[in-house]
Design a protein around this nucleic acid. Sequence first.
RNA 1: UGGGGCGUCGUCAAGUGGUAAGACACCAGCCUUUGGAGCUGGCAUUCCCAGGUUCGAAUCCUGGCGCCCCAGCCA
Length: 562
Amino acid sequence: MTIENENNTNFIKEIIKKDLNSGANDGRVATRFPPEPNGFLHIGHAKSICLNFGLAEEFKGLCNLRFDDTNPTREETKYVEAIKEDVRWLGFDWEDRLYFASDYFDQLYEFALHLVNSGKAYVDDLSADEIREYRGTLTEPGQDSPYRERTVDENLDLFERMRAGEFADGSHVLRAKIDMAHPNMVMRDPTIYRIRRAHHHRTGDKWCIYPMYDFTHCLSDAIEGITHSVCTLEFENNRALYDWFIENVNTKHTPHQYEFARLELTHTLMSKRKLLKLVEDGIVVGWDDPRLPTIAGIRRRGYPPEAMRTLAERVGVAKKRDTMVEYGFLEHAVRENLNLTANRVMAVLDPLKLVIENYPEDKSETFEIVNNPEDESAGSRQVPFSREVYIERGDFMEEPPRKFFRLSPGREVRLRGAYLVTCESVVKDPDTGEVVELRCKYDPESRGGDAPDGRKVKGTLHWVSASHAVEAEVRLYDHLFLRENMNDIPEGSEFTDFLNPDSLTVVKNSKLEPSVANASAGDRFQFLRHGYFCVDSEDSEPNKLVFNRTVSLRDSWGKGRK
RNA sequence: UGGGGCGUCGUCAAGUGGUAAGACACCAGCCUUUGGAGCUGGCAUUCCCAGGUUCGAAUCCUGGCGCCCCAGCCA
């Protein structure tokens, strides 16, 4: 795997280098990946994971895995397990640094008390609707709540009673006392605690008040001694509040927030809401559908984690918004990895029988074929050959156009690793005229694929001996959406309007060489001349193999012809 | 008519006053027992626009233009 080492910098790395040089944070670098356990991770999260763990790795620091679980109504333990699996799969290790914001609820409560005591937070009795009205608009300042000037003692009493469960959900909130006329809406006395009687996946029913993200995140960072808190661009406005809390609460560490552009890919979507709809409406088979950009999906699709890390490194980290990385960029990283690591195998997806008339009926022999021309250590395997083989229907044309190098009447081609064969005649279905069989002649002198007289052929075809073939189901995947930019669809249209009707093609009776018979879930192969495939982890069984196409091979012949 | 950000090749993206990296894509050629892979070459006289400063500007200044984010008791 090649990872570019030259010029692989970005603005966050530059900030860290500067901090290291100036001796900030005692020379420590600490980052964290902070998902909310309320759904499945996708490729966008993978970029963040690679960035945070990668930064720690590069600068000899540490990266924590922290679940941001401050909203009990949305979070579930099953998601924390799924997320842990995804991070591990990507190749990162948080060691003993697995944290939960909910672990800090007691500490956070103390911090809130500190704000109340210093006159910087107050309990507000306004309803959610009233608070919104008092907040003002983007261009008009807000108004102070009538409860804003309560005394410290009164606020203390009220806040403690909020915690004690004396008030109904929604009746009170604790707010930071900042500035209702602040030009940054985030700073107009933001809510820091709300009353919510909901069962928390970890703290159970211990609490009926829960801290808000803005209050929790920066202080959790401070508690953990995070130095560089990296998040996505939509939190830029929240940075002022992040800093306000750090300044107004006594914390030992003073973390800083930096924002980068999230990863978006063409022909797909990262929106949790839309992905959920695809799952719920049965448009895809589940969160791990190989067409989905979820980590579970790409894992099942067969994308190697190394390729995802390479992608994250190559797309870089910047602040430019609305960037769309071409899907082909990802596919390139996947092919690059698989080319080096996947063993080659022959698979005929659309079989056409080829009978070698001058090959003895009862004869069969095996050929030793190299497993991976890119990797000598991958060795070789024995592939059986006999009088009747299957070739790809698309590898034969009765009336070949110019530049068609494959088989046609009278033409000689190579059966990869076996013999040179010449098409003598074509057998057709008398009713439909469909070609059902090719009658050929082979050159016994060309064993292995080369003729002793040195004559060359233009085409080399993959093949599978008919009597030895293993049947399998092969699932061919394509873009989920026809439209490139799914973040910007025409007014009046629904995102589902752009679904690709051919995002999945199931090939039921493909013929594979027998060496794959014992393949197990997740095994990856290159089906010669087709692409990279893996054994499906859900539906494949020992006697009923199912393969997923991870990505096709580049095809300069097929390109532009379909 | 508020505040915060961003505008460099079709797509990502370096560049931080010294004369436009790299990758993907694309094009051409070589090579090839995968029309795969690989190899070679090509691909921004110009950095949203207009002025200005300077010997010299993508980088500094001024003024425009365009796009994105923010009015959850979500994160």
